[in-house]
Every structure is written in C-alpha cells, then in structure tokens.
Design a protein around this nucleic acid. Structure first.
Lengths: 133, 133
DNA sequence: CAGTATCCAGAGAGATACTG
DNA sequence: CAGTATCTCTCTGGATACTG
C-alpha cells in the first residue's frame, strides 16, 4: 500500500462511509477490548468481569456489555436461579475480532520502545518544563 | 487509580501493562486514523488535511498531529518559504500501523452487515420506542 | 448476584478570532 | 499558510445507593 500522492485530491475519507471508524467506535472504548480479552477464554460472569478488569465501574461494565451485546459480539445468558447467574460469552464474530486485535497488539508490542523513545525525545525538545517538575 | 481491589487478584488484564491499550490510546481518537489514512499516500500539507478530513476543526487537527508527531508516527517538515509550507509524512512505523489497521478494516467490512442486523434485532427487542419516533 | 438510577467532574471537541 | 489562544458545551466515565 504505497502509492504516491498525485498532489491533487485529498477527498480522503468520509467518516460515515469509513469502516475503520465503525470498528474503532466499537472497539476503541476504554473497556471494550478488555472485556473481549477477559471473555475470550469462555463464558464469564458479571462479577468475575468486574473483579477481573481493574478499575472498571459497575456502570461502565454494564454499558459496555450492553453495547457489545447489541452489536452481536457477546451473548448474555441468564440462568434463572437464586441468586441469579448471568454469563457472557463471545460470539464467533467477536472471536475473529479478538484475533485481529492480536495483530494490533503485536504491532504495539513490537514498537512500544520506539514510541516511548519518540515521546521522550519530543518531550525533551518541546516541553523541557516537564522534566523538572 | 482506585484501590478497591476485592481480595481476588485479577489475572486478566492490567490496563497499564496491556499493549492493546497502548495502541488504542494512540489510534482510537476520532481523528487519528483519518489522518493516518489521509497521509498514507505521501507528504501532505496542513491545509490539505484540513480540507480533506470532513468535519475536523483546526484545533483538533493540530492537536492530533502533535500527538502523532510526539509518538513518532508522523514527521513535520517546515519549508522556510513565504508563505510557510509545512508537510506531514508518515514514518515507516506508522505505515506498518496503517497496514495493520487495514486488517481491522477488513474485519469491519466483512462483518458490517452482521453487526447492523444484530443492532436492528437488539433495538427491536429492547427499545421498541425507537422505531416510531 | 446482577444490575439500575443518579449525581457529578473532567476530558474531548467545536467555533473562531488572532498572529508570525 | 499554519498555526495558537480561548470560550463553551457535550459526552464520557467514576462513585455509589438502591432493587428484583
């Protein structure tokens, strides 16, 4: 993917038509990915997720799960027992997504030092104040 | 960082240690990806970006570019002419990222109908009000 | 247990006037 | 041209009390 810029256009990307946006809207949230990862090993209960995902609030867990469910990425199964038992499980489509995300992770893993260093350099050059706070 | 860890340690995901988070923090912003895409064909000027990316404000364009630059994903080259001419170009690392994002795009493209339908079904079942607004 | 309802603070983001 | 400086407002997300 390396065509050169003709210098002309730049009608670039339309946010609405752009599938990248769609994915990211679905995945980019602070918690979505963590839920996908946490649930990738099989069915998992609400409280397990709550305890497993450091720092998530009950509210956000619920909201995020609802959205994932709405998009057909997780299924929600209520076992009518007392006390109630609700299990969440990834759908096949979500498992695919999880795999795809793995690629992104690899990229991050692979380039984390590069980025960290780039930041350090940038900060040193553009915001020296930050160094001696 | 809230310290309300309830006994059982989470072995799931630690936000800080998780490289997925790192990628997404970098990419998830409303504009980052669009800039990466817009610049993927070669050097591009500030105003070209501004015009090419529908709906972006001058402020957000600047902020996002600065962040990408800070992370070593774009380079900023000032040509000392009058009027000034500044060009942004993706670094090799960013080009890799762009390619990786392509995978995600493919996933979205491939499953967009599934998701759209899942949503429709969910909304019909859980929020009938929305149907006759 | 598995949520919902509520209140509240801060980051994200739009609009735009001004400047080297 | 390529930004910076402000002001404003919305929306996200945290904390937590309450409930079937």
């Amino acid at each position: 993917m390396s065509q050169r810029n003709t210098g002309v256009t730049s009608q670039v990307v339309n946010a609405q038509a752009c599938p990248v946006r769609e994915v990211l809207d679905r995945v980019a949230g602070k918690w979505s990915v963590q839920i996908l990862v946490a649930a990738s090993h099989g069915p998992i209960r609400f409280t397990e997720l709550e305890r497993g995902i450091e720092g998530i609030s009950r509210r956000m867990l619920t909201l995020t799960l609802r959205n994932l469910e709405r998009d057909g990425l997780v299924t929600r199964t209520v076992h009518p027992t007392v006390p109630p038992r609700v299990e969440y499980e990834l759908t096949p489509v979500a498992l695919e997504l999880h795999e795809t995300l793995q690629r992104l992770t690899d990229w991050a893993e692979h380039n984390r030092h590069y980025i960290a260093q780039a930041r350090a350099v940038y900060d040193a050059e553009h915001r020296p104040e930050l160094l001696d706070v």
